[in-house]
Amino acid sequence: MITAAGLCPWPPILARELTGIDPVIPELRASCAEVIDRLIRTAPDAVVVVGPAADTQVWTSYDHLDLSLFAPMRSVATSCLPAPLGLGAYLLDRANYDGRRVLQAVGSNESVNNCVELGRTFASSSDRLALLVMGDGSARRSVKAPGHLDPRAEPFDAAVAQAIATSDFAALEQLDSGLARELMVTGVAPWQVLSGAMKSITTRTDMLYADAPFGVMYFVALFMPVYS
């Protein structure tokens, strides 16, 4: 069963070690920390981190974020953990979570059905699982954005925000993955896994953060099941 699900983005600048003297985005970091804290407080048997990657696979639970991929002078981890999972593991580390964790990469080109099915398997687990789903909205939200401004980005992200805020998991499942690729959205496949895990559950949603301060849309949200 799912005890709770959290949604976080995975900009490398979430790692305080990568932003230099200026903390840059303390509000975003605080929102993510709150999500992790509330996930942990549901006393799960394990936290399942779901993040986009080239291929769908499970990574070993003791893998950590390799900061040196982004900043060569930083310590080097021994693994090649994909950055989205690495940032998820980093958030758990920062919360001093030492319970069981599952690092689940989901291929960016994975079919909707496979993503949804993967989510269902988590929901039907006999373990109490908390999901931490890593993904961003469009990276084309402004002229200075990594992908420059695309006028289709804002309405796309608005639709995602609406789906998150109203726990409309069917809408997350039906996102146009082709358009999402053009808009440099990293969250689609993980959100579809989330949908598979959550859509049969009544949930209450808290949206803690939804903004694009550097032209990349970040969503931070918590979905708490309401079991009658």
């Binding site: 991929l69 992908g147 440099m184």
Partner: peptide, 12 residues
């Protein structure tokens, strides 16, 4: 004419 987006290198 593209900008880097979360680019990683094992050894740049």
């Amino acid at each position: 004419r593209t900008r880097p987006f979360r680019v990683t290198y094992k050894d740049v």
